[in-house]
Computed example of a mutant assay.
Amino acid sequence: MNYKRITESVDIELLQHSHIVIVGAGGSKQLILNLVRTGIGRLTVLDIDKVDDTNIVRQGYDQADIGTYKVDALQEKIERINPNMNYVGITADFLAMSSEEIDSIFKDADMFLFLTDSFKAQSFGNLLALQYQTPSLWAGWYAKSRTAEVFFQIPNYTPACFRCAVSSRYKAQEKEVINISSQCNTIFHSALLDSYIGILILGILHRDSSDNTKESVSFFKGLLNDVGVLDWNFLQLKVHPNGGNPLFDKLYNPLGTYAQNFMACWQKIEPELKPNYKTDCPDCKGRLSQLINTNESYE
């Protein structure tokens, strides 16, 4: 692989020694391939689904992939990009895995991505992120695909967990199972969100680059720190003027309805403390920052 045209943006050696675990290989298909092109050295992708004919127009798989597990179809494409890539595709449901199986997959990763429509998978991912104290990112589209969200949490940097960010969703799911449909997602929706996610991944991986790191990685080295994005770790992206999101209406109504198209809004997420729950957030207990670099447990 010839990386000479991107060495002014990324630290190739850093990326080649990075391991990312990704849950969900649907809309993230192109993101995964682009991570390979950018120099990520090791990828583990979990998805239980096979490619069907609807995935051709929405997710970028090929006709020849129909009937093949998505993680296997990805392997063929990855090998054509970088035959030396360290890639593992897993078709087992990680919600049904033993603690030993989970440990073998997640323990040594540098970052987790949870990119599914399944609330159970996304919420279980939060427990894993806290258990392994690993930088993690969640992303997806809301119903009708007019607004998307990206949330990330990083040990030592961000104070709140995924459950803190979407606590109302947890409460709604306690009353009834709510399935989020990606029925309106076109390939352009996937490409747009994947690009935002990819930029954030590179920023997160470069966050600890020292001042002595060569100047060529200055773009991603300072991406999160320089603009304070680490304090604003919940991104909502609106792609339709009638996005149905009151946050955008509140912030951008002075601009007029049609000026609200393609807007991104960052939010600062604080730990969910009493009285939002009877105690504190059941997952991180409002102590995410305090527990980092200690031997204390989240139990």
Rank of each mutant, 00 (worst) to 15 (best):
M1N: 11
N2G: 13
R5I: 07
R5L: 09
E8V: 05
Q16I: 03
H17I: 00
H17R: 15
G26Q: 04
Q30Y: 06
L33M: 04
V36W: 00
T44S: 15
V45D: 01
D53N: 14
T54P: 08
R58P: 04
G60K: 09
Q63Y: 12
D65F: 01
D65P: 00
I66K: 02
Y69L: 06
D72S: 11
N82K: 14
M85R: 13
Y87V: 07
T91W: 07
A92S: 14
D93R: 13
F94D: 01
F94Y: 14
S104I: 04
I105E: 05
F114D: 00
S118K: 04
K120W: 05
F124N: 05
L127Y: 04
L130G: 01
Q131L: 09
Y132N: 04
T134D: 08
L137G: 00
K144E: 10
R146V: 04
V150Y: 01
P159F: 06
A160H: 00
F162H: 12
C164Y: 01
C164S: 03
S168K: 15
Q173P: 05
E174R: 14
E176L: 07
S182G: 11
C184D: 14
I197Q: 04
G198I: 05
G203K: 03
S209A: 13
N212K: 15
V217I: 06
F220G: 00
K221I: 02
L230H: 12
K238R: 15
V239W: 07
H240G: 06
P241G: 07
G243Y: 10
G244S: 12
N245M: 12
L247D: 10
L247I: 11
D249Q: 14
Y252C: 03
Y252A: 08
Y258W: 12
N261R: 14
C265M: 11
Q267F: 02
Q267E: 12
P271S: 05
P271N: 03
K274P: 03
P275H: 11
D283S: 10
K285A: 01
T294L: 09
